[in-house]
Amino acid sequence: MLRDAAVMAGKDLRIELRSRVATNQVAPFAVLVLILFAFALDPDRGVLARAAAGLFWVAVLFCALLAIQRAFAVEASDGARDNLRLSGLDPAAIFLGKAGAIAGELALLEVILGAGVVILYDRSLHGPVLLVVTCVLATIGLAASGTVYGALAAGLRVRETLLPLLLLPVVAPVLLAATRASEAALGGTTGDGWPWVRLLGVFAVIYVAFGVVAFAPLLEESS
């Protein structure tokens, strides 16, 4: 199953690498969001630096939406979805592969956004261990729940508008927990961050498990 997942993730990542949509469109969009936040919040009065953790995760959420839409858009044309179904790959492995590819893209975006926060918002990084664990767990949670909802909305006429409505409330706890944990890390009070990391871990485990179980019926239904 894991090898199937790796095949699937490799395929998706190769498509992204060759089409350059992620590098040419999603990553610049992420930076653009950071710049827009600076316009909306006065950078001189320190609001921006104080809100940096929250803004970072909101930007990640927006980018995650794009990455998820994209991951299922590539399956929409030329009957790719049917091919996927007929490929003989385990649906659970397809889920893990897709989620893995999305998580990989998100991780890259988080590095770019993190650099953006340091440079543009003048915020220095502390608590590296907590930050990295937070990012990893939050990314897994976002990718897993996003893949479930992406598959749910894929093939529908209204998917572009429906996906944010379905996904954003579900990942509200991720935004909350990841923001608190990052704030604790940046503020040097790492002790406060760990309960939030546990919550992120629980979220990730639950949605990975749900996706593994629910992906078979999801994949066979929408044609």
Binding site: L152, V170, R180, S223
Partner: peptide, 27 residues
Amino acid sequence: ARAKRNAIAALAATIDLPIVHKSVEWW
């Protein structure tokens, strides 16, 4: 297909509730 989709969406939303509750409670 519609019914299956609905059912999965309802369950995915429901399992989120305890987590939402816990997170905002700490918040």
